[in-house]
């Protein structure tokens, strides 16, 4: 299971955007699953970067991703437990996971500066995609006020990471 939840997602927008737009409004159990999966995938991508990269800035960025997304997901798990909601797997979560696995394989073949560039570029793209999904679909669809509030905090975190990643991209050029 963990092995399938892997790296970043360059082509994600091609796949998930239609899925998100086309499907009916996601339910709270589905939203919780998507948000949790999105965080876990970014943690796994960061772990790959920590295995492969020797660049100090890239490694620090990856450590930030692990730390923040671990905390968001910890809060998400506490909330679903409190609300007695069972996160429900769905097409969007599956698409995210599949794309992440493909990206992970692609990044696995790269080393050194080529890996660093590809990883941080994908982090920008990935956070952009997740931000779009949060803003346009997940937050407006969430029914429970506490879930909505956690997603809003998650959006601010993801937006911060996107800007941070953009900064790292300009440094590893």
């Amino acid at each position: 299971m963990i092995a399938r939840l892997t790296a970043g997602l360059a082509t994600l927008c091609l796949l998930s955007a239609p899925l998100l737009a086309q499907g009916a409004k996601p339910t709270d159990p589905q939203i919780a699953h998507i948000a949790y999966t999105a965080g876990q995938l970014d943690i796994d991508a960061a772990k790959q970067a920590l295995d492969k990269s020797k660049n100090k800035e890239v490694r620090e960025f990856a450590q930030d991703m692990v730390r923040d997304h671990t905390e968001v997901n910890k809060q998400a798990l506490a909330l679903v437990k409190k609300l007695n909601v069972k996160p429900e797997d769905n097409d969007t979560s599956r698409a995210l996971t599949k794309q992440a696995a493909a990206k992970r394989d692609e990044l696995a073949k790269l080393n050194g500066a080529a890996f660093d560039k590809a990883y941080v570029a994908n982090e920008v793209a990935y956070h952009k995609t997740v931000n779009g999904a949060l803003e346009n679909t997940l937050i407006p669809s969430a029914n429970n006020a506490e879930l909505k509030s956690l997603l809003q905090t998650g959006l601010k975190i993801f937006q911060g990471h996107q800007q941070h990643a953009e900064h790292v991209v300009s440094d590893v050029k």
């Binding site: 930030d64 923040d68 601010k156 975190i157 937006q159 911060g160 990471h161 800007q163 941070h164 900064h167």
Partner: peptide, 8 residues
Amino acid sequence: FCKFHPNM
């Protein structure tokens, strides 16, 4: 600003 979240 915040180094981890430059939107802050």
